Simulated scan of single mutants.
Amino acid sequence: MLTHRHVVVIGLSISSSWGNGHATTYRSLLGALARRGHDVLFLERDVPWYAAHRDLRDWDSVRVAFYDSLDDLGRQYRSAIQAADVVIVGSFVPEGAAVLDWVRRNANGVLMFYDIDTPTTLSRLEADQSCEYVRRDQLGLVDTVLSFAAGTALDRLTSLGARRAHALCCSVDPCVHLPVNEPTRWDLGYLGTYAADRQAAVERLLLGVARQRVTGRFAVAGPMYPDTIDWPANVDRVDHLPPLAHAAFFCGQRFTLNLTRADMRRLGHSPSVRLFEAAACGAAIISDAWDGLEDFFEPYVEILPASSAADVLQYLDISDAERRTIGQRARDRVLSAHTSEHRAVELEAYVAEAMGLHDLARARMAASPE
């Protein structure tokens, strides 16, 4: 275990999980770091859309503070940045590129960029498009780039100039997401914020199935779905669910559907937070397929890949005994490799590596003639 460290994270949001997957990721990872003895401060830009939907309650393991602007960040937290052993700046932070520049001028410890949106970053930077939260040159100015995606994404980040790129995929806190005694309300459910590039899969693999199996019960939970969607009568709509309600939602389904954003599917090796959450709850997961899925769950044993409504309908006829077995295997896999504790240990190793390189650089400078 890495000795006690002062860690400062500047991220999109930890206070509100509304419309983003960052908050649950940070809560899981940073909560584990705090439990392992590290002092963790999370700094969040105070914006109205998250302020109106804050669902972080009575959680004191990580200190959370807010700033109004880049200037306010400097006024309030310059000393915290200077004193930190590790500073991590996340993707999609408002004015993130400017924040990274400011942190680099003021940080004395290890500086990392945590890319929770690796597919978006790669597509923009490789096409020389504007990316307000990070510039291409900044990938080589931080000590380490942490990537939500594994596989070829790491080589591509290195090709863009990153000194070191390591996978730090999402994880789950098994104390929050776990099996609960919940009556079965739905045959199939889906939890996810509306996304235009994902909606065709929602239509094909859930709404289309609901229209064919009119005696079944289905559910879609998540915010921002447009009013123009034609919801079948046997599909329940649930608006935003806070993380503490996820377990009850997953456990109230016979099967749960996992759908992946288009850019994550194309890149591959990019599991979503919801995938690990559902598995930790012991849910039997039907998922779209993508390269690298087998690195996280064994197809047809721990997870059920689907590309068509016919696939889903076939899975819905699986016996409850087999369904429970599949869900338990998925839960076992998560508990063995994908908890927040596992990710915290991985992060500690990456920090130790960067600190060792810092110490080596200082030693070389001290030994070199003037």
Rank of each mutant, 00 (worst) to 15 (best):
S319F: 05
L33I: 10
Q138I: 12
M112R: 06
V99P: 05
R35W: 11
V172F: 01
Y26T: 09
V351Y: 02
A247T: 14
V47K: 09
L139T: 03
A83F: 08
D39Q: 14
A167K: 07
A278P: 12
D317M: 07
D68N: 02
G31Q: 09
H342L: 08
D115S: 05
A310W: 00
E294Y: 03
T24W: 07
V7Q: 09
F297K: 02
V345N: 11
Y133G: 06
D173G: 08
M365Q: 14
L157S: 10
S319K: 03
W102G: 08
G222E: 02
E370F: 11
D317N: 05
A97R: 04
A352K: 01
D85R: 07
R265H: 13
D239I: 00
L168D: 03
Q129S: 07
R54A: 12
W18P: 03
R211V: 01
Q253Y: 04
F296M: 13
V180T: 15
D288H: 09
A150E: 12
N258L: 11
L73K: 00
F66G: 06
A80W: 10
D117T: 04
D46R: 15
V214F: 00
A245D: 15
G208F: 04
V214C: 00
V351G: 02
G31K: 11
A310F: 02
E182F: 01
G74R: 10
F148Q: 13
R75C: 03
T118V: 14
E353G: 05
I285C: 14
M355F: 07
G74K: 07
V176Y: 02
A107N: 15
D58H: 12
G192K: 00
T339F: 10
V180E: 09
A367Y: 04
D236H: 05
A153E: 09
P232I: 04
G216V: 01
V134M: 13
H6V: 14
D117S: 08
P271A: 03
R63K: 15
V220R: 00
Q328T: 14
I318H: 10
R211N: 05
H38L: 03
E182N: 00
S28C: 15
